[in-house]
Design a protein around this nucleic acid. Structure first.
Lengths: 244, 244
DNA sequence: GGCATAAGGTATGACAGAGAACCATTGCTT
DNA sequence: AAGCAATGGTTCTCTGTCATACCTTATGCC
């Protein structure tokens, strides 16, 4: 009878036995460069790191990286200029980026519920950790990021918002957490691009941002987590409403 | 003046620009199969999925997978038997697995603080999510997993403990969360293997397990998160003490 | 004007890994 | 006893990726 565990447990195994490399290998690189753009870490008009730098960071050959950039050029998302002080520059978002349908299909494949839940967990956890052990340097960065969102114009709001949350994730003291948050946030931004940006929600968001940062600065982990969960809940409700 | 953002922000970029493929590619596969063993998803004496199945799940060629298994055979961690009803079988842990030093060096490379923090965040988040939306089926699985830890003998405790937590992660409703937890838990188990298993801690652990499960079954997310954080804190303190 | 420099653009050879086919061994079934 | 089926063991070829070197273009500096 083999202890009643004859058949391999179907559930838990799948958590581990996920594909080692999601796709062509070059697709993974594409994913990461797309994150760079979606997170707004390199804003429109700015230059990406040089091909040689990028390929080193991503640990792929320059040839493969160029394949990736080629795709983005074809999508009119970046532009390459030669010569000294040239480089690969981020173009402003075109009105209809769903032209090719290539990136459109990706969204459909996203498990929205998974994304929203995972995001809330990471974000609340990060806020809690920040509130527990924030350095003086961290305080300053946090305040700076919050101020930037307060002063942001409408078209730059998403970007500043992202940067604020990314800052919190980094200050959590867990590199893994920060990296995972970056990934999930990129997905989230992609989803958010599909729904309107309402000024009312934006103002509400801003109040919540202030409350979260205040709780962190007060070194109150419970409040920080609670505020963050509320904040995430708002976004989640909005998205569920529009995508349902 | 370029908006004062002339130099690429050094912090946030690193969250995204991490290497696309960590190592030889076959190393990633080795990592995952090791997870299978460290998590106790396939207990000693049991059979791993066949080479053909495993390679498909991991999306690597069978040849590469066999390289991985070869390493594990050399480490006396698994044993292969040919013929029908043959396969690759997990061997009981040998007393001194640190003989080669190969796996020993990996531990030194682990960022313990990162692991502990990330673990707490995921675990508390998972417990909270479970408490919010648990199905009848989930209740049953959870109770089953808890019972298994209660009745476990000392040498099987780590395994049952892992399975309980893994069950919670899966019931969170976020596949990504479950996968990430599996990864971090494998690292944690590796660390835990380096310190003694104290009966006193074990009993304490059991009480906390019961409390967490009770909170989840009561649909009390706050209590579930709080209990879980306490539970994780205990392990963390223990590890920090022994490894400091 | 000419040169140095930093960036993108191109070409080539070596190798790791994928995929498929086939062999060898074992135990159950007939 | 014979055959079948499922598994590990082996070998082959072919594609994708890497590493490297070199070419081309644009800008600043002398």
């Amino acid at each position: 009878m083999a202890g009643g565990a004859g058949d391999p447990p179907p559930g838990p195994l799948d958590s581990v036995l996920r594909p080692v490399r999601a796709g062509n290998g070059f697709e993974e690189a594409l994913e990461q460069v797309l994150q760079l753009l979606r997170l707004g870490l390199v804003p429109p008009g700015e230059r990406l790191p040089s091909e040689r730098e990028l390929s080193q960071h991503l640990r792929i050959s320059r040839v493969t990286l160029r394949e990736v950039l080629k795709v983005l050029q074809d999508q009119n998302m970046v532009e390459s200029r030669r010569g000294r002080y040239g480089g690969t520059f981020v173009l402003p978002r075109t009105a209809a980026p769903d032209g090719s349908g290539e990136l459109r299909r990706r969204i459909a494949a996203v498990d929205v519920e998974d994304t929203l839940r995972f995001r809330e967990v990471l974000e609340a956890g990060a806020a809690g950790l920040c509130a527990e052990g924030l350095t003086a340097d961290g305080e300053e960065r946090l305040r700076g990021a919050l101020d930037a969102t307060q002063g942001a114009r409408l078209e730059d709001y998403r970007r500043q918002d992202t940067l604020l949350h990314l800052t919190l994730a980094e200050l959590s003291g867990s590199r893994t957490l920060a990296a995972q948050y970056a990934a999930v946030r990129a997905t989230l931004n992609e989803l958010l691009d599909g729904i309107p940006l309402l000024v009312r929600n934006l103002e509400h968001s801003q109040q919540q941002h202030a409350a979260v940062v205040e709780a962190v600065l007060d070194r109150d982990p419970d409040a920080a987590r609670e505020m963050t969960r509320e904040h995430c809940g708002g976004t989640a409700a909005l998205l569920r409403g529009f995508l349902a």
